[in-house]
Design a protein around this nucleic acid. Structure first.
Lengths: 202, 202
DNA sequence: CGCTCTATTGACATTGCTGTTAGTTACATC
DNA sequence: GATGTAACTAACAGCAATGTCAATAGAGCG
């Protein structure tokens, strides 16, 4: 019986951080904020929690990096939607789907809820640019650079974002209560969109 | 120098639970879920955490009771909105305001986010009746008992609830990003409401 | 007043998470 | 192959939250 010597894996700092963030995100989405602890993430990765502290400085450092990573993903998803909006001739449903997907699939909905509950609103700041970009992209597409249209489109984006966020978090139980199918929220929001460009906001 | 003997206050079980729940709710809204601990709540009330365990059984018992209390309040707020809808001739803005207030003031928004992040969806169950009551109340008011109208109104309620929930959580930062005033969300939602009764959902 | 019931306390044990430190090992470079 | 850097580990200490238990004391009741 020979002594099994476990071969130790050595990652680059970037690899280590990346793997940890992927794992931490999965934990956040599956088990909530309380399940993303140093020990839990370290165990998942087959390392010790001390090593995570080595890479992120502290537990708060890991959480902060996770927020940053997820916010960046949300930002990128919105930017992609903007780019497609500027080039393709996507229907309004396309845009709505893009925003809803960004909040649902990337876990941005749960992320934002976590941030708000903790009170760290500053982490949401990088989203500002993307959100405003969305307004301008729609404005350019419609070819109406007036001040009035910007205000109107801002409220449209506000409306889409609120709905997408809500759907990502409480959509499933709420739709279940109301006997609505899985696509109901997107359909409703997309259906209401034309009224924003047609009429002036009261 | 006489020995100061601290006079011990003795509450009825109902008083104790009530005070604890009020305090726990304030903590949840101000500092997030992590700030509602046995010790913190007990300190606020001038008692020991052991006494809280005596009344609620465990920390989880306190959290569960808090969720129950807040869900009940949300349910009542919705019922009040329903009652007013059945008697008064409230404008659509009234209804929207009632739902938005229910999510914002009572803290139902943060509560729901907390429940979803923890994964305890069962706690939301008592809301089902109120939500469905809302659909039927609107339907009665419009005097159209058809199946089609119910489906349409369900999607309207879904849409209002998602928006109200979103506004309660990320409304403030999002409106700030978009240069929208405090009432923007309510105004937009109320403005879109007429389109639900007028047209058939695509 | 004496008695009972139980809300309440204080002290202790336990557990899980965070953070520190000294030492170990993988890997790149010479 | 020798060497240095730093990724990594093991063991420990500290802390905060939860939970247990025996003892205390407020309030109603005879």
């Amino acid at each position: 019986m020979s002594i099994e010597r476990v071969r130790r894996r050595r990652r680059t700092p970037e690899e280590a951080r990346q793997e940890a963030l992927v794992c931490a995100r999965a934990r956040l989405l599956a088990g909530g904020p309380d399940s993303v602890t140093l020990k839990a993430v370290a165990d998942d990765l087959g390392m010790t929690h001390a090593n995570l502290i080595h890479h992120f400085g502290s537990a708060e450092g890991l959480q902060s990096a996770l927020m940053g990573s997820m916010v960046a993903d949300l930002s990128n998803a919105l930017d992609t939607a903007i780019a497609r909006l500027r080039t393709d001739d996507g229907a309004p449903l396309e845009l709505v789907n893009a925003v809803f997907d960004a909040f649902a699939e990337g876990g941005a909905g749960k992320l934002a809820a976590w941030i708000v509950l903790k009170g760290d609103l500053s982490h949401l700041e990088p989203v500002r640019a993307a959100v405003n970009g969305l307004v301008h992209a729609i404005q350019d597409k419609l070819g109406d650079p007036s001040e009035a249209s910007q205000i109107r489109l801002s409220s449209a984006v506000l409306f889409i974002a609120l709905s997408a966020f809500g759907e990502a978090l409480i959509g499933e139980p709420l739709r279940d209560m109301l006997d609505q199918d899985e696509d109901a929220s997107r359909r409703v929001v997309a259906g209401l969109l034309p009224y924003f460009v047609a009429r002036s906001e009261r």
